[in-house]
Nucleic acid binder design. Structure first.
Lengths: 338, 338
DNA sequence: CTGAAAGCGCTAACAA
DNA sequence: TTGTTAGCGCTTTCAG
């Protein structure tokens, strides 16, 4: 049992021995307990310093029943959106002395439950990011994962707060923007089928259509990355649309690049919008009109919600919705057919 | 002591009780020890399943002296390079059942040692990514962090393998590429001062200069992000250079954007190169000529080196150097003054 | 093949 | 104020 003895690590017992006190006293000193005689405390600190003692967090975790670590499960770490959430989460958690453990499900929805469970057991709480699993599974899983916060999904389980981005609202506003520019043939380059955020966009567009019977709205199947946009050029041109709503900024960038290769001018011939406002969006040529989502802040907010849960504070709002904000840049312009 | 009792978690004891056996037997069954009577094993498994028992990893870690977790310390999680390393590391480690714990030093070099120490204690090993700390500090710290692998830095400590990217080589080749296109006035838009990888680029340029006394090479102070490039437009134009080597792709993209705003054509008026070949590089307008670094693979390699260390296998190569590969795209072209 | 018991490193109740 | 002791949940030796 115990560790394979290479260079035995210094433990609390070594310090106790060296300082001529008990483990308990060393523990008290290390935790800043003031009921220790200053002289003894000093002796302990000296011993600890000489031995370069650092408490073992695993032992501490076992005794305390907490790890000061939270987990995050993402579908794909290559996705800038999840990277930004991770960053916001990690920064905010670090402020409170918590670390973040990553689990990437590689878009394999069947892996999510297992990964989430494993991560949860190692951590004090969990952030489940845009899970791809079905509603029923999510519903069933949620209680066992508590404390947990959801991003871009929701449950009926009251103890699980959700942070949602109102993609429907955002896409509607982008569509309105195109209409104001005189576009009457709009194309939505949709995202991954399993993506809940794509469903929200589609819903938003339905609402939009209801309010604009005169505007033609087409839908082209797609995905969530550069290639999706790049490969969709032909379909887009064939559609005859002049205002293109890309699923996100990546898709929009791919499309921009493809259109450029074809000699199609943006925004003179075709207007293109993205979604998310990733840092790169303002540096494309032309700069991308998009709907800005404060993703990093969302990550920070996720930590604050989770922290409240962990501390057993007042239950946070069940659902916290972030509204995207349209950023008009150079990739959209007046329709030629106005 | 112990956890604050909310909904007591199921432990090995509960399973033992339910199956009418001892803890030890349950442990054996859970670990696939075949010295257990099949009938009893089955009874244990049933009990475990009914109780939905999952072993507590913290207890396990304490007993085993290992956490199945590795840590990574990065200077800035917003940097695409470190994101890619993290991703490669995380994917590779997951293959072997290891999880990754993140620590972001926010470019504060004084925090690195503390973060690294803390992370190391919670984990079985550490990846230290492009640390900003001084050589002396790194040298002193290294032994206490073992097993550890370094990225883009090295130590004399033999047990610490390094994965390095040959930035000097890469920048030299990019400069050669510009010369071949007829450029004789080259400008290097340099990176952060503390960055070791910037120093390597500068060294590479020194070598280049030695081989090309006829070529003028200027150096402009900069940084590592979009804004650096965007804000450098005036200085670049004032320099009279026609071939611009940007510190990395981000800087190059910012510069591209700034030049576009000024109406300067790329590559007709000025050629621009990046470095790293981040995914966005091929989708800029024009697509960016750059030196490709297999960053995600580097992350994977980091895990393999670390794994060897953890398993106490043969000592991996002290230094493993990755050579960037020039990707010629549309942002570089013949000099007007050829 | 199984159970009792020790031990991983730490915290905290309890006694002194 | 300090030490003794139990216990966090697990693995593993050692008897039986």
């Amino acid at each position: 049992m115990g560790r394979k003895s290479t260079t035995r690590r210094i433990g609390i017992a070594d310090v106790a021995l060296k300082a001529g006190v008990s483990h308990a006293t060393v523990s008290r000193v290390m935790n800043g307990n003031f009921t220790v005689d200053p002289a003894i405390a000093e002796r302990v600190r000296e011993a600890a310093a000489e031995l370069n003692y650092q408490p073992n967090p695993v032992g501490r975790s076992l005794a305390l029943g907490k790890t000061d670590t939270i987990g995050i499960v993402v579908p794909d770490l290559a996705n800038p959106t999840f990277q930004a959430i991770l960053r916001g989460l990690s920064m905010a958690a670090a402020q409170d002395g918590y670390r973040v453990l990553i689990a990437d499900s590689s878009e394999v929805s069947s892996e999510e439950a297992i990964l989430a469970g494993e991560a949860r057991r190692r951590c004090d709480g969990l952030v489940l990011c845009a899970p791809r699993m079905g509603d029923a599974e999510l519903e069933e899983l949620a209680p066992s994962l508590h404390p947990m916060v959801l991003i871009n999904r929701s449950t009926t389980e009251i103890r699980v707060p959700s942070l949602m981005v109102d993609y429907g609202q955002g896409i509607q506003e982008l569509a309105e923007h195109l209409v104001e520019l005189g576009h009457s043939r709009i194309v939505f380059l949709s995202g991954p089928e399993r993506s809940a955020s794509n469903a929200l966009r589609v819903q938003g567009l339905e609402k939009f259509k209801a309010g604009h019977p005169d505007v033609e709205v087409q839908l082209i199947d797609g995905g969530s990355n550069f290639d999706t946009g790049h490969d969709a050029v032909d379909a887009v041109l064939a559609s005859g649309g002049t205002g293109i709503l890309a699923f996100n900024d990546l898709v929009a960038m791919g499309l921009l690049s493809g259109l450029h290769e074809r000699g199609v001018r943006v925004p003179e011939d075709i207007s293109v919008t993205g979604f998310d406002d990733i840092p790169f969006a303002r540096y494309t040529t032309p700069p991308l009109t998009t709907a800005a989502v404060p993703i990093t802040e969302l990550g920070g907010q996720a930590w604050h919600s989770l922290r409240a849960l962990i501390r057993n504070e007042d239950t946070p709002n069940a659902v916290n919705t972030f509204r995207p904000q349209v950023e008009v840049r150079g990739s959209t312009g007046p329709s030629k057919n106005r």
